[in-house]
Deep mutational scan, measured.
Amino acid sequence: GSPGIQSFLPPGWEMRIAPNGRPFFIDHNTKTTTWEDPRLK
């Protein structure tokens, strides 16, 4: 199987799917959430 997208996120980050189907990202380091992919910064 191919590695999940989770493995490509920075340490402490998690990806979830919102009720509307959009992915969002949780930064457990700062306890914040964002719509922006942290890998694109």
Rank of each mutant, 00 (worst) to 15 (best):
F24V: 14
Q6H: 12
I26M: 06
L9I: 04
M15V: 10
T32Y: 08
K41D: 12
D27K: 01
H28R: 04
H28N: 09
K41W: 11
A18V: 03
R22G: 05
L9A: 01
E14K: 02
Q6M: 06
F8K: 15
L9S: 01
G1L: 11
N29A: 09
D37E: 05
F25M: 00
D27Q: 03
P10N: 03
T34L: 04
P19K: 13
I5D: 14
P38Y: 00
D37K: 02
K31Q: 13
N20H: 05
W13D: 00
E14Q: 05
L9R: 00
K31S: 11
G21L: 03
G12Y: 04
T34E: 02
F24S: 07
E36L: 11
W13A: 00
R16F: 09
P38L: 01
R22P: 07
S7F: 09
G1T: 14
D37L: 02
S7T: 12
T30S: 09
A18F: 05
P3D: 14
P10Y: 06
L9F: 07
W35S: 06
T30P: 00
F25Y: 12
P19S: 11
R39S: 07
W35N: 06
H28I: 09
H28G: 06
G4S: 10
A18T: 08
T33I: 15
T33L: 13
G1R: 10
R16P: 00
G12R: 04
P3N: 14
G1N: 13
N20S: 10
P11D: 11
A18W: 03
R16Q: 10
F24L: 12
P23H: 11
K41R: 11
P19N: 09
F8T: 15
M15F: 04
R22Q: 14
T32R: 10
W13K: 00
P11H: 08
G1Q: 13
A18D: 12
R22S: 08
G21R: 03
T34Q: 10
E36V: 10
D37R: 02
P11N: 09
P10F: 05
Q6E: 15
L40R: 07
G12L: 04
D27Y: 04
S7A: 14
T34D: 02
N29W: 08
S7Q: 13
F8L: 12
L9T: 01
T33P: 04
I26R: 02
F25R: 00
F25L: 01
P3Q: 13
N29K: 09
T33Q: 10
W35H: 05
R16I: 12
G12W: 04
W35E: 06
T30G: 08
T30F: 05
P3E: 15
P38F: 00
N20I: 02
P10K: 06
G21F: 02
M15R: 06
T30K: 07
T34K: 03
P11M: 08
S2D: 15
